[in-house]
Amino acid sequence: MMVRIPSVSMALLLAVMDLYSPMPAVAQCRLCVTPSTGPEAETAPPVKLDVETNLDFDRLVLGGSGSGSAVLAPDGSRSTSGAIMTLGGRAMVGTVIVHGEPGRAVRVSLPGAITLYGPTGSEVRIDSIRSDLPSLPRIGSNGSLSFRFGGELHVSGGADGNFRGDFQVDVDYL
């Protein structure tokens, strides 16, 4: 009789462990080891980004000396308003690829606005920069995350010519 009771308790004990424990059934000192739920910083591959395509509004025909704007959305759709008559067919959204630790959450910072400079020192501005990143971006299981971004270009004063502006995209692990 005395022999039987411990075996019943044992069975019950094991059953309870399955119910409660997300940990493997190996004896562990839970109070002294930090369970790792994410990789430690020292062993994670560094995060980096490549800009695959630059944001390019191609050619815009500006009628008259009025002002206008053109929008290139991250999904590639486009629209124009005001004195901008047409937007070239080769207009392209920017695309960026982030490389890093698979599954890791990242924070990406796009510029709030980009100023483009023209031949005679004139300027045009791209703002409302938006991307198609989800609200909590994570690097994919293949170690990369790619996204597209676009913005709204504002033109005024009858400026014409080739305009260019430099900017950077920042990323860090969360």
């Binding site: 739920t37 994410g38 430690e40 910083a41 994670a44 560094p46 995060v47 980096k48 980004l49 490549d50 800009v51 630059n54 944001l55 390019d56 509004f57 191609d58 050619r59 815009l60 025909v61 500006l62 009628g63 008559m85 070239g88 920017g94 960026v96 910072s109 980009i114 483009l116 023209g118 045009v124 791209i126 913005g151 270009l153 033109v155 400026a159 014409d160 010519g161 080739n162 305009f163 260019r164 502006g165 430099d166 900017f167 950077q168 995209v169 920042d170 990323v171 860090d172 692990y173 969360l174």
Partner: peptide
Amino acid sequence: APPSTTAVVASPAATARAQIVDP
């Protein structure tokens, strides 16, 4: 969880372009 010790990494300079022309 260890605090993030990776620095903010900036991309290589990217360029935005537009060409504005008269009709």
